[in-house]
Design a protein around this nucleic acid. Structure first.
Lengths: 130, 130
DNA sequence: AATATAGTTCAACATAAGTTGAATTATATA
DNA sequence: TATATAATTCAACTTATGTTGAACTATATT
């Protein structure tokens, strides 16, 4: 097994397994569509079903995935607890943006390191390096 | 089929299918590890193999996926074209950050819209709305 | 010209995940 | 108490994808 967390030579600013797990949940068109609706204030499950035109169990499945990474919260209706409202967890969204931005930050890009290959061999020859 | 691109009632700031496709490529621990090395200047394929301890065909497979979304460029060695150098496409990385930030922007979060459910019915009753 | 090397492509496999329909749970209403 | 409703859970299916080993391509070296 590879150690994704701490590559001593090239440490990552975030845990790559955790980031991959979260991105995997987000990497689904219908889940992005659900997120878009939740962000837009469409949080009643009945209206989600209307807007998405998807089977209720499928919506439930995708919402479960989103809840699994903490991005979505659930709340039952105060009058009739059969109804459920979903909402975006603001803190989780902030953290997601922070992690994504930290890892994919363009400022992190370093120039090419030449430690092997023919170019290095040639330079070594010129310098007389072993 | 659902129309992910333009939901007239709740338009998304980016194309959700395109975003999902890109996130899908990123949502893989080993590919994140490869990206991390490329960002850190480790671009010679020989050194990638050493650092990742993965089979060369598997590295090639993952790099192919990353190239597919334009995030990684390829360049052959000037002296010995058998060697290949991979690098992060800065413009693609910028665009990725822009798209991600636009869609997952916390400032987009709207308050709950109540257009259905028991709470709405109660309010309608109090107001005498049909 | 023959051999070695860097890297990719191909085919087969195993696993994971989205989709579907039926069954189940929990709450509210008649 | 029995029925209806909102939502979830379950099981089966299909598809997609990471992994592996072998075959292949292209370039460089002897």
């Amino acid at each position: 097994m590879l150690n994704y967390i701490s590559d001593e030579l090239h440490p990552a600013p975030v845990n790559l397994e955790t980031l991959a797990e979260r991105l995997k949940v987000l990497a689904e068109p219908k889940r992005l569509l659900i997120i878009n609706l939740l962000i837009d204030g469409v949080q009643c499950n009945c209206e989600l079903g209307d807007a998405l035109q998807m089977a209720p169990n499928l919506i439930s499945h995708h919402l479960s995935k989103l809840r699994g990474v903490g991005l979505v919260d659930v709340e039952r209706d105060a009058i009739d607890s059969r109804w459920i409202y979903y909402s975006i967890n603001r803190a989780a969204l902030d953290e997601l943006n922070a992690a994504f931005g930290a890892f994919f930050d363009p400022a992190r890009i370093q120039p090419r390191r030449l430690t092997c290959g023919p170019s290095v061999a040639q330079v070594s020859d010129l310098r007389g390096t072993a």
